[in-house]
Design a binder for these strands. Structure first.
Lengths: 226, 226
DNA sequence: GCAATTTGGTACGAACCAGTTCATAACACA
DNA sequence: TGTGTTATGAACTGGTTCGTACCAAATTGC
């Protein structure tokens, strides 16, 4: 497309020389770049709808097949990276400080915001559920991360029960399910819901209000009866 | 499937003569049969993944193209029928009898059960959200049905506020959103959630327990502060 | 500077698949 | 019983898409 021995390329004709990088770094960079575009493509069109040539973009397919074994392998890599990132973010919330209800509220609000800010995760998970989690099951590294969130919640619940702010018998997995359901739906079903009921769910203001509301719901549910 | 002029059809060797029906009836029958199989196929594989030949089954695609304009048109018909059916079911719950919290509880439990019993609706809606509701938007008949549920909720809320069992300021659309989110997630994300956290979400018992839990959450949220 | 890594370019094969063409069977109605 | 209409099968078309193969050039490693 463009000449490589440009001296005075007139217009925006970029010389397109590869910057000088080590193979290791260049490899990392190339892979991440592919994953970025692939994420976009899989998110937009699903696994069957995504096109390898589109993902290649300005480059050629050749490059993709150099780093990945095929479409499915690429899809799994995209999925694994997205999951890895949620897990990292979840661990970033400090549940030790403040009262137990306050800490829970912070976590819930973080969840709502994270989902809103990362629709790509939501859409990948939706897609994975349409495929009955068949690709997810092939990724080995994930279970450990899931256990971590539950453990965080278990400790928080214990603290809340001990100081009497939470009722007894709250199951951390069910708590997590309810928090996630409310956070997830807001993104996953935003298009049908917005169309059916004419409400905005994605503006900054709407997300902030939604975060408060979900926190209200969850806290009301776990609170000790007065 | 079976011959009607059977005398002694030896094996399964069906003569495959079409039963004698009026064109109108036969048409209705053919369309519904196609929609049934198409629902299955779209639900399993999404729009891009679904195969017209698969939907045709023992018949040929020609039949499908005789009744529908193309794949997208067929998909819209499938979607419209599924939505029509939820609306009908929603209207079947009587919110007038019993206390307002009890009525709400009944509605919530109905929602959870309906979603569990109709995963095809859930999956179609998921798929539609992946496509940013672009097909849903082309279906004209739906808005009226949506308004009806909200109106039902509005009246219920009014009753609960009046007798002091609900707090003030509950928005029917948001109530509907939260009920649906919790009911929907249980089906939509069952595969990833079951895999990640090792819980059963689809057994009869699990659904019943879930229905109670969701009702608890919603009722706790709308209840007047004592 | 020579070997290994990375990437573009291009062409291609094979499979797949939505939609069409043509023929013909079943039906409605006179 | 005959004629036009409705419904459906069989086979084909044209386009798309994944994945491969091969070559050349650029870059990096040593």
């Amino acid at each position: 497309m463009k000449p490589k021995t440009t001296r005075k390329s007139a217009i925006a004709a970029a010389p397109a020389r590869r910057p000088r990088r080590s193979h290791a770094v260049s490899r990392e960079l190339a892979i991440n770049q592919i994953l970025d575009i692939a994420t976009q493509e899989f998110v937009d069109k699903g696994l069957a709808g995504a096109r390898i040539d589109e993902i290649a973009g300005r480059a050629t397919k050749r490059k993709i097949y150099y780093y990945f074994e095929g479409k499915d392998d690429l899809y799994r890599a995209v999925l694994a990276r997205a999951y890895r990132r949620v897990r990292e973010s979840e661990s970033g919330v400090d549940l030790e400080k403040g009262s137990a209800p306050d800490a829970l509220r912070r976590l819930v609000e973080h969840d709502v915001r994270y989902h809103s800010q990362h629709p790509e995760l939501v859409r990948l998970v939706m897609n994975e559920n349409i495929h009955r989690a068949e690709h997810l099951k092939q990724i080995e590294e994930l279970p450990a991360g899931n256990a971590r969130v539950i453990e965080m919640l278990r400790r928080l619940i214990q603290r809340g029960e001990a100081d009497g702010s939470f009722r007894r018998g709250i199951d951390p997995v069910r708590l997590h399910m309810n928090m996630t359901a409310l956070s997830f739906y807001n993104v996953s079903n935003q298009f049908t819901f917005a169309h059916n009921f004419g409400v905005d769910m994605s503006s900054r203001k709407a997300v902030a209000a939604r975060a408060r509301e979900v926190a209200d719901i969850i806290v009301a549910w776990v609170a000790a009866k007065p």
